[in-house]
Design a protein around this nucleic acid. Structure first.
Lengths: 144, 144
DNA sequence: TAAGGATTGGTACCGAATATCACTAAATGT
DNA sequence: ACATTTAGTGATATTCGGTACCAATCCTTA
C-alpha cells in the first residue's frame, strides 16, 4: 500500500532534459538524493552555501516539472517539497509533527474519484489528496 | 451530492467570537456574503477601498479560523479563498478555467479514508482533497 | 582553442500575508 | 451624558517564498 518506489535518477532526468553537466547541479542532486523527508527550498539552499539560491530554486523547479519532486501543502498551509517516484499518480502522507513525507497509492482512491466524477457538475481533470498523520516514528509523535 | 449548505451567518460568527460591531467589518461581511466563487484577498481588498488592507486580511482570517472561509490551492499552486458551510467536513471542486469553487461532501470519501488509515503507518489526523474541474458553466470551459 | 550558447549567482523585485504602532471608535460604568 | 477602557483600524514596514534580471562564467562543439 505504501509505495517503496525507488528514488528517481535525478541525473538521468537532467540529461533527458538536455541539461548540461555542472558542478552546482551535481551538488544539488547528491543532496536531494539523501533526502528522506520533506524539505523547504530555504533549508536546502542553506545546506548548499556554495550554490546560489537562484540555482537551487531553478533546479528543483526543473525536477518538479519532471515529476521527481512534489510540492505539498502542510496542515498549516505552508509548503514542503519531497522527492517522489516518477511516472505514477500518487498521494502523500505528511507527519504533522516531524514533517516526514510518505508516498502512497491506493487504487481505491482513484476508483472512488472516478465514481464521484459522475455526480460532480463539470469534468474532473485532476485531484489532490493529502493525509495528515502522526507518523509514529518521530520522537514528537511517540507515545501519543 | 454537491452540497447546498446555507451560507454561514458571518455576523453571528463575529458576535460569538466576542468581536465588536464596526463599520469596516460590516462592509467586509456584506461583500463576502455575496461571493459565489473563490476570491483572492487582494481582489476583496480592492473592492473595499474604504477599508484598510490589514483589516480585510485580519477579518477574513478570523472567518477562516471559525471555519466559514476556506483557503484552497489552485492547480497552479496559488491560493484562493471561498465561503463555505460551517460545521461539517467537506471538500471542494475548483474550476481550472474560471476559479469557481463548489463545496461537496461524499460520505464515501470519508469512509474510504477510514479504510485506508488502517494501512497507513501512523495515525491519520485529517486530510485534504481537492478536485480540479472544468465547471461547464463558465464561458472558458464551454464546448470542451 | 576560440566561439557561442547555457548556466550561474548576486541582487532586485514580486505577490501574499503579517507585524507595528499611533490613532480612532465601541462598549461600559458612573 | 460623559469619561474611561480597550478593541479595532489603517498606513506603512517587514517578512516569506519565490522569480526576474543580467553581467560574468562555464560547457560544449567545431
Amino acid at each position: 500500500m505504501v509505495s517503496d518506489a525507488p528514488p528517481p535518477d535525478l541525473l538521468a532526468i537532467l540529461e533527458r532534459a538536455g541539461c548540461r553537466d555542472t558542478a552546482p547541479r551535481r551538488a544539488i542532486v547528491s543532496l536531494l538524493e539523501q533526502k528522506q523527508e520533506g524539505f523547504t527550498l530555504e533549508a536546502l539552499s542553506d545546506e548548499l552555501p556554495s550554490v546560489g539560491r537562484a540555482t537551487v530554486y531553478r533546479t528543483v523547479k526543473l525536477f518538479q516539472e519532471a515529476g521527481a519532486v512534489c510540492k505539498l501543502a502542510t496542515i498549516n498551509g505552508s509548503h514542503i517539497y519531497s522527492l517522489c517516484g516518477v511516472g505514477h499518480h500518487h498521494h502523500h502522507t505528511v507527519c504533522v509533527e516531524c514533517g516526514a513525507v510518505e508516498e502512497f497509492r491506493v487504487d481505491a482512491v482513484e476508483r472512488l474519484i472516478g465514481e464521484i466524477s459522475a455526480d460532480i457538475p463539470g469534468e474532473v481533470i485532476s485531484h489532490r489528496l493529502e493525509l495528515y498523520v502522526n507518523c509514529h516514528s518521530c520522537p514528537a509523535s511517540k507515545g501519543k
